[in-house]
Computed example of a mutant assay.
Amino acid sequence: MNTTTFTIYSKISELPANWDEVAAHNAFLQKPYLTVLEASAPSNMQCFYIGIYEHSELIGVALAQYLNLNKLESFGERDKCLKTAVRNFVFKNFASHVLFLGNNMITGQNGYTFNKEIEFKHISEVLVQCAAAITAYFKKQKINIHLVSFKDFYPHCADELKAFDFKDIYEFNAQPNMIFELSEEWKSDLDYVAAFSKKYRDQYKRARKKCDDIRIRELSLEEIITQETRIYDLYHHVAKNAPFNTFFLAKNHFSSFKKQLKNQFVLMGYFLDDKLVGFHTLLLNGTVLETYFLGYDSDVQKEKMLYLNMLYNMTEFGIQKQYKRIIFGRTALEIKSSIGAEPIMMSGFIYHRNKFINKYIGKIFKNLEPEVQWQQRHPFK
């Protein structure tokens, strides 16, 4: 690592010209997406963009996010219990300033990428050093970072990192990432439905019938801007009823996304009697289809099985466009497994900068992490 250095940037305009060439394999680390964050990040988030150099040549890029949880309107309103109240108190008082090395807004290994083979020894070293440098920056601003988290690593990467600088950092496994590996034999939605067992084929038919009078179409940038308030209200309703939140999107997030990524970003609107009652979003990321945020009217969702129909529509979009896999993320595990997604465990690493608290970080984390009981479904013959 004597020849490796890093530079931390706070503005997209400062990034090297060849940034996107290095980040070519991950849309979530390329300038258009990072520009979306700069223009419409949650109000309690500040982003940092890290260039990793070898002999002054850019060989890697990474993302870091600082979250001030004191600015959060709610940690989530779905669960009302003593454990939730205790968790909220702890976060407000002992973990309100959080630094993520990675992207806290999406699920998946999207925190860094290199354009050449790099040993995990060097990766672990540079990530830890970057965290220390950003922590020192905030200390100068009179802000004391409480928690540092390195987010979302697939098992083989986590195992490699633990052999080096991550060996003394607490590893945690939150809910799995639901990933759908699409069969190459599926050329249309008919092939997909034909692969279901009778029970799940019946579920598909029932859901589709419920949604007969819903009109679905992709929204242009102009339409997204026109519907911005309604889109945000639908998103916000779903987000605030999640079991746990660390941020809420800015109101202009979806229009900013469409402006920057154009055809790479898809927002599908669901209309009932010409009124927008739901939407889902997709990011086209090479051979991978990334599901992004969605929203819906809860009354319509219940009556029309709107969420399940959204999952089917995202899957059929992926099949029609011949994507290899769909990343469905961490929420609603059981219903996502019922349409074919499989759980893939991912690891994160976390430490508290107070040594006494960090000594018990494992016990504290297990007691604060919302428990999710779910049964995996197996929909195919």
Results as ranks from 00 to 15, higher is better:
residue 255 S to M: 03
residue 245 N to R: 05
residue 305 M to H: 10
residue 298 S to L: 06
residue 258 K to G: 03
residue 242 A to W: 00
residue 342 E to D: 11
residue 300 V to F: 01
residue 344 I to C: 04
residue 250 A to Q: 11
residue 267 L to N: 06
residue 228 E to W: 01
residue 279 F to K: 11
residue 304 K to V: 02
residue 310 M to L: 07
residue 267 L to Q: 09
residue 290 E to D: 10
residue 264 Q to D: 13
residue 269 G to N: 01
residue 241 N to P: 00
residue 248 F to M: 03
residue 270 Y to E: 09
residue 228 E to L: 02
residue 249 L to N: 04
residue 343 P to G: 10
residue 288 V to C: 14
residue 282 L to Y: 07
residue 241 N to F: 08
residue 258 K to S: 03
residue 307 Y to F: 11
residue 310 M to T: 08
residue 335 I to H: 01
residue 269 G to S: 02
residue 226 T to K: 12
residue 289 L to C: 13
residue 263 N to A: 09
residue 326 I to K: 08
residue 324 K to C: 14
residue 303 E to M: 02
residue 272 L to E: 09
residue 297 D to M: 07
residue 302 K to V: 03
residue 255 S to E: 05
residue 248 F to K: 00
residue 300 V to Q: 08
residue 328 F to E: 05
residue 261 L to K: 03
residue 336 K to E: 07
residue 227 Q to V: 01
residue 330 R to P: 09
residue 344 I to A: 09
residue 237 H to S: 04
residue 334 E to A: 12
residue 243 P to S: 12
residue 317 F to V: 12
residue 272 L to R: 05
residue 293 F to K: 10
residue 260 Q to Y: 00
residue 294 L to D: 04
residue 308 L to A: 05
residue 272 L to K: 10
residue 253 H to D: 02
residue 228 E to D: 07
residue 285 N to C: 12
residue 337 S to T: 10
residue 287 T to Q: 14
residue 337 S to M: 06
residue 302 K to M: 06
residue 288 V to M: 14
residue 305 M to S: 14
residue 285 N to S: 12
residue 286 G to H: 13
residue 272 L to M: 01
residue 295 G to H: 03
residue 282 L to A: 12
residue 318 G to R: 15
residue 296 Y to M: 13
residue 286 G to E: 06
residue 229 T to F: 04
residue 305 M to Q: 09
residue 336 K to A: 13
residue 319 I to L: 15
residue 244 F to T: 01
residue 339 I to C: 08
residue 249 L to M: 02
residue 266 V to S: 03
residue 261 L to T: 06
residue 338 S to P: 10
residue 322 Q to Y: 11
residue 232 Y to R: 11
residue 280 H to M: 08
residue 314 M to G: 10
residue 271 F to S: 05
residue 335 I to D: 00
residue 233 D to R: 03
residue 286 G to S: 12
residue 345 M to T: 06
residue 238 V to I: 08
residue 292 Y to F: 14
residue 318 G to S: 12
residue 283 L to T: 01
residue 276 L to Y: 08
residue 344 I to V: 13
residue 245 N to K: 02
residue 290 E to G: 00
residue 298 S to W: 01
residue 320 Q to R: 14
residue 262 K to M: 03
residue 228 E to V: 03
residue 307 Y to T: 08
residue 284 L to R: 13
residue 301 Q to W: 00
residue 290 E to P: 03
residue 329 G to R: 10
residue 302 K to R: 12
residue 308 L to H: 07
residue 311 L to G: 14
residue 313 N to W: 13
residue 334 E to M: 05
residue 337 S to R: 08
residue 285 N to L: 08
residue 266 V to R: 01
residue 254 F to K: 02
residue 275 K to C: 04
residue 259 K to Q: 07
residue 339 I to T: 13
residue 228 E to P: 04
residue 319 I to C: 14
residue 278 G to S: 06
residue 278 G to Y: 11
residue 309 N to P: 11
residue 297 D to T: 05
residue 279 F to T: 09
residue 304 K to T: 00
